[in-house]
């Protein structure tokens, strides 16, 4: 199946989801599914660098928060419609991804991971000290009740949900297209053996920088509508632990080698967490995600997809 066909199919599926949600029309459904879609984008973005290229980014929360705070900044500086905010956030986070990559990817692989870990702490320090975007007190963003759209008035949360759905489709189509392109093969050679890739003429640094930029940009885009979604953005929620751990745990649990893994992982973990946050407590649910991450990397290194493939093979053999 080529990319155009796949894109058409996902758009049809997305439109069906949107139509169903609009018909069902419960605000909570939009709130909950928005979060799940946001995690699909984050997990897919993480996987473009982590799964395809083999470089771990621990700073997903930082890139996400960069997107969210770009929106807050634009909101105060010159209010733009949300689709334009996606582009602003993508540029800001993409540049950050490129810069981080440029400084650390020329060295040993683990330096990039360490630098991204520290990046979250430092950006949080900057935001806490930056009064213009609310500092440590946080920033209020008053969300309009509804929005006029081609003559129809739709609920604002539904509008946000629709935009997130669109972003999810773009992220999935991009991830799948990369996987099958020359670029994707370049990523895979780097993941499997960087020295051999370099020797075969893969421009490794350039390819890695493309990966960090795309991955960072998508994480930023996932964060762009977040201030409007939550209404009150403070540093501790934008840099929340759940973004860092979930965007790693979801692809790892789903499977990192293809675009399906992060999607499955995000839907499973995301909906389980939506359920657990309401019924148990948010700390217990994060603990469970952490334990699952540790268990999966030890027991099922290729995630759920790997498990299914293993069973299939075992089924066929005898």
């Amino acid at each position: 199946m080529n990319t155009t066909k796949f894109a058409l199919i996902t758009i049809v599926v997305g439109a069906a989801v949107m139509a169903f949600a609009h018909w069902y029309s419960i605000d909570y459904l939009f709130f909950a599914s928005y979060t799940i879609l946001q995690f699909i984008v984050l997990a897919t973005a993480w996987n473009i660098l982590g799964g395809y290229c083999g470089y771990v980014n621990f700073g997903s929360a930082a890139f996400f928060a960069m997107g969210a705070y770009s929106s807050v900044f634009m909101h105060k500086f010159y209010p733009l419609p949300i689709p334009a905010l996606f582009i602003v956030s993508a540029i800001v986070s993409g540049i950050a991804g490129f810069g981080m990559g440029y400084l650390t990817l020329r060295l040993r692989g683990s330096f990039f991971a360490i630098a991204t870990l520290a990046l979250a702490v430092v950006l949080q320090t900057l935001v806490v000290n930056w009064e213009y975007v609310g500092g440590s007190r946080g920033a209020y963003i008053i969300r309009p009740e509804s929005i006029e759209f081609a003559g129809i008035t739709i609920n604002y949360i539904e509008y946000l949900f629709g935009l997130m759905l669109l972003l999810t489709i773009i992220a999935l189509v991009t991830a799948r297209a990369i996987e099958r392109s020359q670029l994707g093969f370049g990523f895979a050679t780097i993941r499997d053996d960087e020295l051999a890739a370099e020797a075969c003429g893969v421009p490794t640094l350039r390819v890695k920088l493309i990966a960090t930029t795309i991955s960072g940009a998508f994480m930023g885009m996932a964060g762009a509508p977040f201030p409007y979604y939550i209404g009150y953005l403070q540093p501790s929620s934008a840099f929340g632990l759940e973004y860092a751990v979930n965007s790693i745990a979801m692809p790892m649990i789903g499977g990192t080698t293809s675009w399906v893994g992060p999607l499955i992982g995000a839907i499973l973990l995301g909906s389980a967490q939506q359920y657990a946050t309401v019924s148990i407590s948010s700390e217990v649910n994060l603990l469970i995600v952490g334990l699952m991450l540790v268990a999966f990397v030890i027991i099922a290194p290729n995630g759920l997809i790997g498990l299914v493939q293993g069973w299939r093979r075992a089924w066929r053999k005898p």
């Binding site: 771990v56 621990f58 683990s110 632990l241 745990a249 790892m252 603990l287 991450l293 540790v294 990397v297």
Partner: peptide
């Protein structure tokens, strides 16, 4: 198995995270 680059890192990240959340609990 030669997988320390990606999964080993995720393993330690998970440990860090689990310790922190367990202490909070």
């Amino acid at each position: 198995r030669g997988q320390e680059a990606l999964r080993g890192l995720a393993f330690f990240f998970g440990l860090l995270f689990v310790t922190e959340v367990a202490l909070i609990l």
